[in-house]
Design a protein around this nucleic acid. Structure first.
Length: 271
DNA sequence: CACGATACCTGTAAGC
DNA sequence: TGCTTACAGGTATCGT
């Protein structure tokens, strides 16, 4: 489940193999993911030196010495495999480095994407220009959130999933942050009180920070880039815990559907 | 413009 | 065991 912490973990893992490396070749094993791979991707990356890696929201960045950046999104099911024994039907893009490492972008559902963007204009690239602030940065504050949510009638859960409000949260960490802050996910975003928002902002930063520390979260088939399994399971308080006791009050965790997606929450603790 | 519904695609697990 | 259905980490787009 690639939300922000998983992408951050992925980028850090990739950096061990790619930062400073020369890409011997990049090969495509099909023509598209959610969209076609960009024109000229193979030529742009093959032979290029990787000058750094980064992340914006849920997007991973591979910067090259040629002034272009490969921007990848993992969608729902994407992950990078490091030194795969053999390539499977979902290994759609492969990078081989001059030092002999092989990395593959594997995405069974193909909701992910790959783009090629001029590095100097990354911030004004339309996809990035539309994003809200990074939740772990100083710009994301109580005053930012207050202003962004003012007058909004949609549920706070929905608003936090909107990448224009804050960029990088997904279904899991929104549920977890709202639990920590004691906020009912159905509450109209514009009516969440200032004290509640003052709890929510640090709750978001804390839950993301802890997940990054834990090495990304830990659903089912999600693995760190090198494929190593068995990193510590981060325990969720509410996500996917319908019917189980609330860690704070013991009441059973409830599940509702908002915008076609499940929301888990404690009806007693979250008002 | 704000908001909700739907589409995209495949794998897995649950139910019958 | 086999078939069918529901659901899954996200985002873009199309209605109303």
């Amino acid at each position: 489940m690639p939300e922000l912490p998983e992408v951050e973990t992925t980028v850090r893992g990739l950096a061990r193999y790619l930062d400073g490396a020369r890409i011997e070749r990049l090969t495509l094993r099909r023509a598209d993911l959610r969209r076609p791979f960009p024109e000229g991707l193979v030529q742009a990356m093959s032979g290029a030196e990787v000058t750094g890696l980064g992340r914006r929201a849920k997007y991973g960045l591979i910067h090259t010495g040629r002034g272009t950046t490969l921007v990848f999104h993992l969608g729902m099911s994407g992950r990078w495999r490091i030194e795969p024994e053999e390539l499977g039907k979902h290994d759609h893009l492969v990078i081989e480095t001059a030092s002999g490492h092989r990395l593959s972008l594997c995405d069974p559902r193909r909701f992910g994407s790959v783009d090629l963007v001029d590095t100097v204009t990354l911030d004004s690239w339309p996809t990035f220009a539309a994003l809200g602030p990074e939740p772990l940065g100083d710009v994301f504050s109580v005053s930012h959130l207050t202003a962004a949510l003012a007058g909004r009638a949609a549920a706070i859960k929905q608003m936090l999933l909107d990448q224009r409000i804050v960029a990088g949260l997904g279904n899991i960490y929104v549920c977890e942050a709202l639990f920590r802050a004691g906020i009912n996910p159905c509450k109209a975003a514009g009516k969440v009180t200032r004290p509640a928002l003052a709890r929510l902002v640090p709750a978001i930063k804390d839950v993301l920070g802890e997940a990054i520390e834990a090495g990304g979260s830990t659903l089912r088939d999600y693995a760190q880039p090198d494929g190593q399994l068995g990193y510590f399971s981060k325990r969720f308080d509410v996500y996917d815990r319908e019917g189980q006791p609330c860690s704070r009050c013991g009441a059973p965790i409830g599940r509702i559907v908002q915008g076609g997606r499940s929301t888990w929450f404690c009806q007693k603790c979250q008002k």
